[in-house]
Every structure is written in structure tokens, then in C-alpha cells.
């Protein structure tokens, strides 16, 4: 297996607040990695570092062995940001317009979308099972449907790696299942390496091939099995954690923030 993402001694601070502390992480081609940790532990920051949106204050991020800043083919990196943080829900864009945006960077300036590009948009919408909604306004969809549209937007540029930041936040259990099925297909059939941030310790345990834990800006490699103790979890999370296994009806877990 080849290494598709490699972080070497990566540290990062916002102004003088240290958020990532000497992170080392290697992800192989084809993996489905779940990145978990409490709010504020630096998960989103780590993802932004991995996609090259933020530059580490020290250390290196390699994608296929190349520094992420030097990756020519940006479209090989797909990114579904943490929902609601920058997008305006009442924006008058149709689903297919939103998905087509994923092609703009790849197309470059001065080029218009071709018929073939719209085919690609339709195909991506079929993959996430949203083709019937292609002419709907994005704001009129449920949270889970919007999330699938944003996944389609990330898919149109034909990424090799897909980063998803808390894609299940605020969506119901049924949509969550659909979402995981889609991700599973993308990982197994389309051979896309997936790195998914989530807040839920339990919900993803049987969905991903590996779990990486974050706490206080550090990575904990002892999280790749679920047999860690209450004490260890409390250490990672910085507060006592209840260890009960109601994870498949975990609506309440989703009600954070």
C-alpha cells in the first residue's frame, strides 16, 4: 500500500494559541479513517492543514509524497467542510448549480461549463442519490440532503482523497445511515481514500477501517480499537465520558452545538 497522506511533526497555532502539537500521521491509499475528538480539540484545523488551506507553523504535509502546497492537481483533494460555517442557507442556488461549483477550480478562468461537465454533475448527483432534487433550491433541502449535495460537489472534480468534516452533524439517524452507505461505496468501489471527522466515538466504529483520536492538539494512536478504558477516554477528552453503547439511536449525541 502506498502512503497517500503523511504528516511529519506538524504543529500549528492560531496567533499564539497552539492548536496542533507535533502531529505524526500516515494514511494509506484506500483507507477509510475516522478522526474523532471533542469540540475544540483541533480536528477541523488538522483537516485544513491536510488539504493545504492552512500552513503548519512547523512540520510537513505530504500528499502522495509531494508537499501539499506543491500539489499541481488540486482537484485530487476533495473537501466537504463542516456544515453551516460559511454557506448561506437562503442562497438562491439550485442543487445542480451548487454541485457544478466543484468543477470551477479545475476548469480555470475564462472557461464555461460544457455539456460533458453537466453530465459529470448529474453522475455525482446519482452517486449520492440526489438526482431527483437537481432543480431544487439548496436551502429547501434537509440537512442530510444538503450534506449529500456537498459530497457531490466534492466528487465532481474526481478526487483521490475525500476529507469530510463532521458530515453527520444535525442530520437524523436514517440520513446518517444513507450517508455512510454512500461513503462506503465511494471507498470500496470508487477507491477513494476517505478521512472523516466526527464527534461521535461510537457511531463510526463499525463504519471505518481505522479510528484516530484527537485530544488537546495531539493524536492518540491507541484509539484504533474500541477497547480503551473510561480513564483513557477521560484523558483524551479532558472530562469524564459515559461509556454506554446506545450508539445507534444516538440522536442526542448529534445534538451538540
Amino acid at each position: 500500500m502506498s502512503k497517500i497522506v503523511e504528516l511529519k511533526n506538524v504543529s500549528f497555532s492560531y496567533n499564539d494559541k497552539k492548536v496542533l502539537n507535533n502531529i505524526n500521521l500516515t494514511i494509506d491509499d484506500g483507507e477509510f479513517v475516522g478522526l474523532i475528538g471533542p469540540n475544540g480539540s483541533g480536528k477541523s484545523t488538522l483537516v485544513k492543514i491536510m488539504i493545504g488551506d492552512l500552513t503548519p507553523s512547523s512540520g510537513e504535509v505530504l500528499i502522495n509524497g509531494i508537499n501539499v502546497k506543491d500539489v499541481k492537481n488540486r482537484s485530487m483533494i476533495g473537501y466537504v467542510p463542516q456544515k453551516s460555517y460559511s454557506f448561506n442557507a437562503s442562497f438562491p442556488a439550485s442543487v445542480k448549480e451548487v454541485v457544478s461549483m466543484g468543477l470551477y477550480g479545475k476548469l480555470g478562468l475564462f472557461k464555461k461549463l460544457s455539456k460533458g461537465d453537466w453530465e459529470i454533475v448529474n453522475n455525482a448527483l446519482k452517486i449520492v442519490d440526489m438526482i431527483d432534487y437537481k432543480d431544487r433550491l439548496i436551502g429547501n433541502l434537509s440537512g442530510g440532503q444538503q450534506q449529500r449535495v456537498f459530497i457531490a460537489r466534492a466528487l465532481v472534480s474526481d478526487p483521490k482523497i475525500l476529507f469530510l468534516d463532521e458530515p453527520t452533524t444535525g442530520i437524523d439517524a436514517k440520513s446518517e445511515d444513507t450517508l455512510y452507505k454512500i461513503l462506503d461505496t465511494l471507498n470500496k468501489e470508487n477507491k477513494i481514500t476517505i478521512i472523516m471527522v466526527t464527534h461521535d466515538v461510537w457511531a463510526i466504529s463499525d463504519k471505518v477501517s481505522r479510528i484516530v483520536c484527537m485530544g488537546n492538539g495531539r493524536l492518540y494512536d491507541r484509539c484504533d480499537t474500541l477497547d480503551f478504558s473510561k480513564k483513557e477516554l477521560a484523558e483524551i477528552y479532558g472530562y469524564p465520558v459515559k461509556l454506554d453503547m446506545h450508539h445507534h439511536q444516538s440522536e442526542n449525541i448529534n445534538n451538540r452545538l
Binding site: 460555517y85 448561506n88 442556488a93
Partner: peptide
């Protein structure tokens, strides 16, 4: 639509 996503892409 989304200035940050546009920048990243």
C-alpha cells in the same frame, strides 16, 4: 455562495 470554499478550490 461560499468564499472560503471558493478559495480552497
Amino acid at each position: 455562495f461560499d468564499e472560503e470554499a471558493a478559495l480552497i478550490s
